[in-house]
Simulated assay, not measured.
Amino acid sequence: MSNSQVAHGFSFILTASVFTAVFLVISKSLLNGVGGKLGTLAFLGVSLTYLLLYLFK
Rank of each mutant, 00 (worst) to 15 (best):
S2F: 13
N3C: 09
N3G: 07
S4V: 08
S4I: 07
Q5K: 14
Q5A: 14
Q5S: 15
Q5L: 10
Q5G: 09
V6R: 04
V6I: 11
A7P: 03
A7L: 08
A7G: 05
H8F: 11
H8I: 12
H8P: 09
H8Y: 10
H8S: 13
H8M: 13
G9A: 01
G9D: 04
G9L: 00
G9Q: 02
G9K: 00
G9S: 01
F10V: 11
F10T: 10
F10Y: 14
S11Q: 12
F12M: 05
F12H: 08
F12Q: 04
I13M: 09
I13R: 03
I13K: 03
L14Y: 00
T15W: 01
T15A: 04
A16P: 00
A16E: 02
S17E: 03
V18I: 13
V18Q: 06
V18S: 06
V18K: 08
F19A: 02
T20D: 06
T20Y: 04
T20I: 05
A21C: 02
A21I: 05
A21G: 08
V22L: 12
V22T: 09
F23D: 00
F23T: 00
F23S: 01
V25L: 09
V25Y: 06
V25A: 07
V25Q: 08
I26M: 11
I26Y: 13
I26C: 06
I26E: 10
S27Y: 04
K28T: 09
K28A: 09
K28N: 13
K28S: 11
K28V: 09
K28D: 10
S29T: 11
S29I: 07
S29R: 13
S29W: 09
L30I: 12
L30W: 11
L30K: 10
L31V: 02
L31Q: 01
N32M: 08
N32E: 07
N32D: 07
N32A: 09
G33K: 00
G33P: 00
G33M: 00
G33L: 02
G33F: 01
V34T: 06
G35Q: 10
G35C: 05
G36P: 03
G36N: 02
G36E: 03
G36F: 03
K37S: 02
K37T: 07
K37D: 01
K37R: 13
L38G: 08
G39T: 06
G39N: 06
L41H: 01
L41C: 04
L41T: 00
L41K: 02
L41I: 04
L41R: 02
A42Q: 13
A42G: 11
F43G: 11
F43Q: 08
F43N: 10
F43Y: 10
F43T: 07
F43L: 13
F43E: 03
L44Q: 07
L44E: 04
L44N: 04
L44A: 15
L44F: 14
G45M: 09
G45I: 11
G45N: 07
G45Q: 07
V46T: 08
V46Y: 06
S47E: 05
L48R: 07
L48M: 10
T49D: 05
T49A: 06
T49N: 04
Y50L: 14
Y50Q: 15
Y50A: 15
Y50G: 13
L51C: 12
L52W: 11
L52T: 08
Y54G: 12
Y54P: 05
Y54R: 14
Y54S: 15
Y54F: 15
F56L: 15
F56H: 12
F56Q: 15
K57V: 14
K57H: 15
K57N: 12
K57L: 14
